[in-house]
Design a protein around this nucleic acid. Sequence first.
DNA 1: CACACTTACGATATTCGTAAGGATT
DNA 2: AATCCTTACGAATATCGTAAGTGTG
Lengths: 312, 312
Amino acid sequence: MNLSSRDLRAVIALIEERNFTRAAERVHLSQSAFSALIQGVEESLGARLFERNTRNVTLTPEGRIFEDSARRVLADFDGMVANFQDHAQRRRGRVVVAALPSLAAGWLPGVLAEFRSRHPGIELALLDQLSEQCLGLVRSGQADLALAATGDKDADLATEPLCADAFHLVCRKDHPLARQKEIRLRDLAAHPFVHLSRHSSVRRHLEAAFHPVPMQTVLEVEHLATVTGMVAAGLGITVVPALTLFHFDRPDLAVRPLRLKGLTRRILVVRRKNEALSVAAQALRELMLARKPTVAKRSLARKAVLRKVSLP
Amino acid sequence: MNLSSRDLRAVIALIEERNFTRAAERVHLSQSAFSALIQGVEESLGARLFERNTRNVTLTPEGRIFEDSARRVLADFDGMVANFQDHAQRRRGRVVVAALPSLAAGWLPGVLAEFRSRHPGIELALLDQLSEQCLGLVRSGQADLALAATGDKDADLATEPLCADAFHLVCRKDHPLARQKEIRLRDLAAHPFVHLSRHSSVRRHLEAAFHPVPMQTVLEVEHLATVTGMVAAGLGITVVPALTLFHFDRPDLAVRPLRLKGLTRRILVVRRKNEALSVAAQALRELMLARKPTVAKRSLARKAVLRKVSLP
DNA sequence: CACACTTACGATATTCGTAAGGATT
DNA sequence: AATCCTTACGAATATCGTAAGTGTG
């Protein structure tokens, strides 16, 4: 037993037209091929569906029983195909991205806005979490993609580089370091730091890069915006990656790039290794790679974001 | 776009087996043909359903979306086909027969019992009504078949003869007519009749056959069983068709066949002219024609019925 | 290097359309 | 005579299986 959606469509066309010639046209077949098709369907089913005498075509009582279910099955089938194609053609779907807070607040909004305007039917979810948690969300299937800093190698995860995020010194303009010609690691270590939590990837990178030189910590906070306030108040200096500099774009603060070994954070696009991305997630991944964060000088990152948001 | 139930079955086999070779066996195809089939389905749908790397086969995210609906559509499809074939093969269905009370009580029960034992899944409904109403029930579609006496020609109805039902005199054994050698019409007219209602086909036949000779009516009742009692009580004689004689099979009553012009009632099987019978109704029609009432001598009809009831 | 999917290719089946046939009104 | 379904038949197309090819673990 094997019937195709085309067969069902033909039967329904004949039910509605009650005429082989017109029904054949509706399904784009010659009348004779259509006749053979209907006979084939009847043979497959093991009983006549139509009573034909030369002048008119009528449904048999069994045909009437068939009609309703045939319409239902066909409608369900068409719905299935349409739904599938909506997903496959990025008209529908859902992508969950896990991203570091620095990216989630700075660069990502512009990218998501562009994605959204290209694919209005796709739902987006953004989980702004610390790097380690982002990776966990992808591994467990709760997120499709993660934007995270370099982490431990993981057999389940596939990564590809998004950008290298160089660290910068941020301090008040009246701070001695703001005008110093060359800034070495021990120059920084001589001043008190306003730090992010030691769980953050920024902090971890700093600890690793300074090791074994100890840093002085004046304060440890959770959010970058808080760091801004503290630094502006003169409590200390801080060292953060380029992508977070938009937090520090204020007239009273100085930002100085640092060219010190290890003071670069690599941002990765992460996904599960043994599982294909949905077409929606794939489209977002491609957009992210195409819109790689520019290697920011000072707070150009912010201007870049604004430009992108306003794209068509 | 055209997919067959076989295509869906193949996709689902592959989802479950996660292996082309085994899935191909399940749908009775060579592995290469199966591979081509899956590729064809994916091409029809416009996106990959499976991610295959030589070692294992996994569903794409879009494939997962497809899976549920595919199972549902296929189950629905199979249900549709099974239901259709149940009806077409007389495992399910419903037949409504309208029949004259005389047939409904005497001959028909045996036929219906046999039908029922052959087709236990088919519901039967019996409407015991007068001839005119039986025809109306068929015309309006409330009944599939009618067993009625000859009626007016009707453009919507097709008829075929079931049997000729000869009229018999019924009287008490001690009645003068019980022993009379030849019974003529005017002999009957000389005695008072116990009559059925003038709406009944029996009565109409009698009136037509006697015309213009008037009959004497001692009593007019609705049911044949009542006639029996009245005749046995000696209130009068009656004249009824052979198929009703089982009502009069009593030691105190005499039954005499009458060979008089017009005193034969033709019983017809009636159906709608422009509509095919359901296979169930068709099967019942064929059984009725095959088990035509025997041309009863006296109350053999009753014995015949009993014999048939006890058939396998 | 072995296993599993894909590709190549010739044989077989199916399906298609044109045209003729047959039945009904 | 006109209409409409079925049958006949050759051509185009699709499908199938064997066998060779390819890539991954």
